[in-house]
Nucleic acid binder design. Structure first.
Lengths: 215, 215, 215, 215
DNA sequence: CATGAATGAGTTTTCATTCAT
DNA sequence: CATGAATGAAAACTCATTCAT
């Protein structure tokens, strides 16, 4: 008795087909957001029938969850593979390196980025509930890696507090950027908007998060 | 004799009815955001006909603008009336006082808060254009007040930078709170979520925004 | 006991007011046609309330009938006052003169003309039934005048046949002109379109389509 | 194997269903004209859902174009199949024959006739633009046939003038008939109304309105 | 298993008509 | 008598989801 029977129908498809479908769905969600995204267009773009799409994912909402999960899998996989930042011991410098990697990942995958930003916006829908279950362990693992080897002795914040702060910063920048950039934006626009804010934030963080130099 | 003749049809309704309609619309916009809000549901909830709703507001977009304007008017009016914070000269302490007033205003008006949070993220729609015209002068006036009498000589940030930072903080907290609290949330939840973050932020700001003491 | 009690409420209004209302209605019907004409706009343009408009005319349809009647009254009155054409004894020449007078009447009253043309188009509605009752006697009277003194001895058609032919010509030109000119048209456009066709028609009326046998 | 894959969804339906839908739409357009025709009523009458109707035809406008195209296809196909009139060399006699065939076609299809009459008068809408593209080549082909073998040497009109005249006659009769017959009319009524006018018209076309001068 | 035609409740908006004041 | 706020049926059109083939 194989225990794959509980698995999604979708997962039994060939990798190529899975990727094709995911790609089509991501593009559509990125283009239009959850509500306005058309499952019809997705099916057409993926070259499958509407019927099949709803066989693979029982509803639009579930599809959304899977799409986001797929993106996160992709992203965390990438970040994990780039761990040269671990050599940098200063936490702020390490943060800058990770941010840079994040850019370089999303630069070629703008659609993924758009979908993720939209998720935050469309928070309400209880989609989020289902997402968190999957999201959190991955995030926890990532944080574990990020902080490994960091010396907290000269920091005024605990690791937990630093994470909380980091989340806030992400949210802040994403949201503000999202409301500044109108719908259509290039990754260049995006990076410019980021740079605009990150300098200030880092300056504030620097003179705040470290213990006051004595004397 | 005021010349109300040119005023909106809506404004001629009894205060009770105006409030009933506004309330219904706010609840619906809070629940679903601009795009998904249903004018049908609003009319039904307000106990008026679809026809009447569109007599009062010529389109869904205009309705949205008026609703938000209504909320802001309400909010800024309240904040303005509470200006004891001006006595506090330290900017961070002053910020805390203002934030506290903000809480106490929105505590009883969770829906207003939700609508405003959504506005920020629905940037795209050209509704925003019309909103900005009305919004910005009010915001500018508010900032003018907030900074009056503040001594910048011991601050490492310009007023402009401070505003930018403040905006980021607002966005950060709003967004994170929004995605943390699922749809239905009490103002207690909200305040708890805020407190959770504000303490940390203020601590970081404190040791960062002031010039390093020499010696 | 005055017998005005059966009369329309409308007819008891001052001549000035009647004219003001009629004018507003005509302009609106001319602008938009029966279906799309807005009774709201009429009332507003006439400076009366919607309620009053529907007191004066029990429905939009009845209003339409009255408006058309008003126009025809106006037109037939004018044509009657210009009877110099009676001096011309040749029927075709007389017809040309009358056509010319028709132009000169409508040139200053394009809206009246538009309404009349539209009536023909929107034939179906049983508005027509009610109209005919009023229309026909006036038309009969007009025809009586038109033919007075005409020598039928050299005509191959009876008076009745000539009238039938005349009607056909009017319909033909109006309809074709209407479908050629797109909604918005000046009286110049209109006259040009007419001239374009009338020459041919007169030639055929005069001689038929075959060449005259020589000799 | 014809490559029908690019064809309309509508064309893939069973002939019976296509006919049922077309019939319902034609009846509705005939009843109410383009603007007032209700797509809801059409769907209901055809026994299909609103959704399906808009799957088959992407908009009301497109539906209208297709309906008219359908009628014209039908009509021109019929006329083409009946070309015995080509044996008649006199143009007026040939015209009579064609007119007779036209009757016999529309006798059983009154609604088709009504729709076509309405099209002519609803000139304004830019629907017409799309229609002309399809209509004109068919009409041109038909005229080409009609005049083939006709001797113009004894005609006082050019072919172009004759066509213009013919159009006028069509418009005249259609319009007058339309306004005479109120909404509901049988094809018998129609033919009677036609006969009533055509005899006169042909007489005038032949000789003009004046008696022939004695030689 | 895959398909895609069919569905119908839903959307925003309009406007002739009524009726309480 | 005059008013004009209120009504609600109707319009064209969309789209996630189902189910017979």
């Amino acid at each position: 008795m194989p225990k794959t029977q509980e698995k999604h129908l979708f997962n039994r498809l060939s990798a190529e087909k899975q990727e094709r479908i995911m790609h089509a769905c991501i593009e559509e969600f990125a283009r239009a957001g959850y509500i306005n995204a058309s499952t019809n267009k997705m099916a057409k773009a993926a070259g499958i029938s509407k019927g099949s799409l709803f066989k693979y994912f029982s509803s639009k909402k579930e599809l959304y969850v899977e799409v986001i999960d797929h993106i996160l899998e992709d992203f965390f996989g990438y970040v994990q593979s780039k761990d040269h930042y671990l050599e940098e011991k200063d936490i702020l410098e390490r943060l800058k390196l990770v941010t840079k990697e994040t850019y370089s990942f999303f630069r070629k995958k703008t659609s993924l980025f758009k979908v993720l930003m939209r998720v935050k916006t469309e928070g309400k829908m209880n989609v989020m509930e289902q997402l968190k279950e999957r999201w959190e362990p991955k995030v926890a693992f990532f944080y574990g890696r990020f902080f490994s080897g960091v010396d907290f002795s000269n920091l005024a914040l605990t690791q937990e507090e630093f994470i909380k702060l980091w989340n806030l910063i992400d949210y802040a920048i994403d949201s503000e950027v999202l409301s500044e950039l109108n719908g259509e934006f290039s990754m260049d626009d995006l990076e410019a908007a980021y740079e605009n804010r990150l300098g200030l934030i880092h300056r504030v963080l620097k003179n705040g998060i470290y213990k006051k130099e004595k004397k």
